[in-house]
């Protein structure tokens, strides 16, 4: 299980870096989906199968499809690729790299201090549901009202006169 975790983690990191470095936006999106799936595997290994499957269904399966859907309509070609390449100059990299390095150092430091068991108890569907509709019911209801508002607004926008 530990090996599975590390393999998935390395794939997630590499894929995420590739998302940034890719100039072809469709390939970048594919790497992003790969990264999300790797994160789903990590969730599964860590004992949260429900979260893992939801990650695959909602993020990789629905949201990224809509991203791809938008990209299809945009008619991107060689010129956007050149533009992307122009933006990826070394000068633009310096500040974010330094900041991310500091953040990474902090993260490693914090992780070293906590003695963390890598395979905790399984968190199944029942536990998640009990939490969602128990202590967090208000948050769930608020989120669903927000989604409903979005749905109604989208319907109103899409409705022909």
């Amino acid at each position: 299980m530990i090996a599975l975790f590390y393999i998935a983690a390395i794939i997630a990191v590499i894929a995420t870096v590739a998302v940034i470095l890719q100039t072809n936006i469709v390939h970048g999106l594919l790497y992003l989906i790969l990264s999300l799936l790797a994160v789903a595997v990590i969730f599964y290994v860590l004992g949260a199968p429900f979260a893992a499957v939801l990650e695959a269904i909602v993020y990789a399966g629905a949201i990224m499809v809509l991203f791809l859907f938008v990209i299809m309509m945009l008619n991107l070609g060689q010129h956007t690729r050149d533009q992307e390449r122009k933006w990826l100059t070394p000068r633009g990299w310096i500040a974010p790299s330094i900041m991310s390095a500091i953040l990474l150092g902090q993260l490693v430091n914090v992780m070293r201090q906590i003695d963390y068991d890598i395979v905790p108890a399984q968190v199944g569907v029942m536990e998640v549901s009990a939490l969602l509709f128990g202590p967090y019911v208000l948050a769930v209801e608020l989120a669903s009202i927000l989604l409903l508002a979005g749905l109604v607004a989208a319907y109103h926008l899409a409705k022909t006169k």
């Binding site: 499957v53 939801l54 695959a56 791809l68 569907v125």
Partner: peptide, 26 residues
């Protein structure tokens, strides 16, 4: 024998959509 069987099928069905989209887009 998985505890998330039905959800797994739904996840795979949603990943199958990429094939069709990428095939047409590329």
């Amino acid at each position: 024998d998985s505890n998330i069987g039905v959800l797994f099928v739904l996840a795979m069905a949603s990943l199958g959509a990429y094939s069709v989209m990428l095939g047409g887009l590329s």
